[in-house]
Design a protein around this nucleic acid. Structure first.
Lengths: 153, 153
DNA sequence: TATATAATGTTATAATATAACGTTACAGAT
DNA sequence: ATCTGTAACGTTATATTATAACATTATATA
């Protein structure tokens, strides 16, 4: 899926967008937060909290779990990253979320994750909720399987 | 949602169904597995592995983590329970799954969980997958919000 | 009965995450 | 410019969730 894209540009865009969002919301994208965000963009694969920790340690950042979890919390709150629940891992987000919903294709072969926006899925979810009288707040959809790239091989 | 149902009957049905499924598949529903399954049915709220452990200890069962996790693994494999990923918790399942997909309404007020089967959601998910060339295997949908019961209050 | 496999027992430890409290940085009020 | 409150970060400790690895026991069936 991603093998030909310019990933450097990808990271740069993500960071630029993060700066914008934070300044709009008057939140600070501090060096630590920025670094953690960068690490979630190192690839299109989810990264684990303790792997982030290890990477920070190898640079001149402080290396205690709370540092990482606080940065992750901040980034999650601002929709700059998401948590892949089925993997206890985190991944950068570059989409505009209307609501608090996210949906992922997770390839079990190469472990790449692609986030998608698909109004038809949202519509089906909303309708099902209404049918139950359930008022949805946060929706998370994780679809595990094989990506197009890996399926070809 | 559930306040008026006969929960004893609910558990009994779940256990009966589990016996059937296991015998059909030639898998053994041993005392430990049965007990763990029962505990996931104690309420319609997800239960944590270490809470199961605590309950087992208070009876005459052995009380080590692997015991519980093995039982959970067996029950998961046979679709007798599901894992609520956003809570690291487990809940009994009484539905027939055609594929490896599950969808939950999770009430953030009372913590009750309702599993649903909704072909329209599956259709939307399948179509989105096809559009990407993604071959889905396991699908998990967790919808957090407020249930009808709690919304009324 | 022999034997292979499944299930369980047991010890230890890995992996993930948070509590609690102290210190520093910084924005806005005076 | 200083005061002051809040946000951010540092630090220690510990809680929570899960698995590895190997020993023992139970069970089915050849």
């Amino acid at each position: 899926m991603w093998e030909r894209h310019s990933h450097r540009k990808c990271i740069k865009e993500a960071l630029g967008r993060a700066e914008q969002i934070c300044s709009k919301r008057k939140r600070k994208l501090t060096p630590i937060r920025k670094k953690v965000l960068e690490l979630t963009w190192n690839s299109h694969k989810p990264i684990k909290a303790y792997d982030i920790l290890a990477q920070l340690s190898s640079e001149d950042f402080i290396e205690k779990p709370p540092t990482v979890y606080r940065a992750l919390e901040f980034l999650l709150e601002n929709n700059l990253i998401h948590r892949i629940e089925s993997q206890n891992a985190y991944i950068g987000c570059n989409l505009d979320h209307h609501g608090l919903d996210s949906k992922f294709f997770i390839c079990d072969e190469c472990n790449e994750v692609e986030e998608l926006i698909e109004p038809k899925i949202n519509k089906a979810l909303t309708e099902a909720s209404e049918k139950q009288g359930f008022i949805p707040n946060i929706v998370n959809v994780e679809i595990h399987g094989t990506c197009a790239q890996c399926a070809q091989q």
